[in-house]
């Protein structure tokens, strides 16, 4: 049987701008110690790559599904913003 075709999607999760990112600050300082000058700010987020069965769903419906996934699990809306992309 032929495997079902799949759609690849990416969800980028970022800390909201007002949330302090101590990890980013530590990396920014470490870059400076390595001699990379001029790095003013570093923010660290997550990329979630998904492979989803292509069941003929429209792009709009798929975007809605991704948004729900992001809101309910992949991101915490209290502290994070997200961006979903279908590739």
């Amino acid at each position: 049987m032929k495997p079902a075709a799949s759609i690849r999607a990416t969800v980028i999760v970022r800390l909201k701008p007002e949330v302090l990112d101590p990890q980013g600050t530590a990396v920014q300082r470490a870059l400076g110690r390595l001699g990379f000058q001029g790095v003013k700010n570093v923010r660290i987020g997550k990329i979630v790559e998904l492979e989803i069965d292509d069941d003929g769903t429209s792009a709009a419906d798929l975007e809605d599904r991704l948004e729900k996934m992001a809101k309910e699990m992949l991101a915490n809306p209290v502290i994070e913003d997200f961006e979903a992309k279908i590739s």
Partner: peptide, 10 residues
Amino acid sequence: PGALTRNENL
């Protein structure tokens, strides 16, 4: 409500 995030001092 709210969230628990990475300690300020890491």
